[in-house]
Design a protein around this nucleic acid. Structure first.
Lengths: 221, 221
DNA sequence: TGTACATCAGTGAACGCGCGTTCACTGATGTAC
DNA sequence: TGTACATCAGTGAACGCGCGTTCACTGATGTAC
């Protein structure tokens, strides 16, 4: 039992509440989460949380913010754990799904409007997305070492990858798993693989335009 | 006001409750949905719904089932509205997103474990997925009119397309829309485009093996 | 080192609310004779 | 055609519950002198 209280004053109630809330989120959903239960789990009266959070929403928002911090850390860890960008990117995908699998309630809260993110929370969410963009850019650069093709804009591709990851996570870990016998990791891995391959194939069809990198072909007129 | 009651007996309370529940789901989320409000919206006492549904979950499950029926209809409509499989498939994607945009609460309920599907409901959900598989198979066949490459199994591809669609829907219509300036329709359309292109590129690399269609290359030993 | 006091984290009882669900009932409907 | 009666959809009042939140309070902590 981490964050156990020591006396009349808890000492680290804020951290204990965040911890308890995450556990509740894991067992029940975002909707079933209750402030009273979080307080009880932290071994404290139902009024105590109000010393640290304005209301229920504020606690949920803080949990979601911490969720994005943890999420970013896991993605960054996966990215730096491999030298080859393609392997690193694949590891990122596995880390993404592992996070959604192990913390489905937290993951759902992070992307739900029930847990309103403050400015800092939105910055943390943006940071996680930046990691994905960096990963996509790395894979694209690795596939284009000779600079034979115009570099596609990594942002829409990252958004497509994010969408597929979010979709796989939602379908398998967010509700009813699909009836088909496919493994979510495989679906995502092969899907992203094909997605990148198709993008690169399209890019190879366009002539290299030195000085016009990252610009769409129509922009020259 | 559809399904308005006429006298002491409502006449079509079951349908009215399903209608009211869908409206509530549209305005609030799955979590905030309440049986009492559905009854009030249908102009009936809070005990009346129990004549037609075992409990709150049963009503939600019935709403979800009807949601899948409507969803399938929209997808089928889009598919049959174009002769060219590629155009039809693109229309299906747009129909998918339009459904999730116009009925976000219903869409969320359909994929949430809060609304337990009965046998019939699961069959309806499977039917919607079948339409997607049919669409993928149609596009693959159109790209392979000369029979030059082994036909890839449409099922995992359909699952990847479903995941990306579900992810785009979840990100843009299910919570916080992403900060990036991309349109969800464009992200999905281009993503699926690249995904299919990559899959076809991979398939072209394999030699045609007459009599071994739909079998993975390793299966020959 | 000791003491008075400000600060503030946590208490516990209470509130109002809305919800899911039950229950004895009432009134409309339709069917058997 | 008329009447008695079974059926059953909807009533309304009530229940128990859990929740978010407030409020006057209490007790520990740390700081100024």
């Amino acid at each position: 039992m981490p964050f156990a209280r020591r006396g009349y004053h808890h000492g680290q109630l804020r951290a204990a509440l965040l911890h308890a809330a995450r556990n509740l989120l894991r067992e029940r959903g975002t909707g079933a989460f209750s402030l009273a239960d979080a307080a009880k789990l932290a071994g404290v009266s139902p009024a105590a949380p109000y010393r640290h959070f304005r209301d229920r929403e504020a606690l949920l928002g803080a949990v979601a913010r911490d969720g994005f911090v943890l999420f970013s850390a896991r993605l960054a860890e996966a990215w730096t754990s491999h030298a080859d960008p393609r392997e690193a990117f694949a590891a990122m995908g596995r880390a993404y799904l592992a996070f959604a699998r192990d913390e489905p309630g937290l993951y759902a809260a992070m992307f739900s409007q029930d847990a309103p993110l403050d400015e800092e929370g939105r910055a943390e969410a943006a940071k996680a997305f930046e990691l994905l963009v960096k990963g996509v850019a790395g894979v694209l650069a690795a596939a284009n070492q000779q600079g034979r093709m115009p570099m596609p804009d990594p942002l829409p591709i990252a958004m497509q990858v994010w969408s597929m990851s979010h979709g796989v996570a939602g379908l398998w870990y967010g509700g009813r798993p699909p009836a088909c016998p496919l493994e979510p990791e495989q679906v995502l891995q092969e899907g992203v693989q094909a997605l990148l391959e198709g993008t690169l194939a399209a890019a190879r069809r366009r002539p290299v335009q030195v000085g016009l990198w990252n610009q769409p072909p129509d922009a020259k007129r």
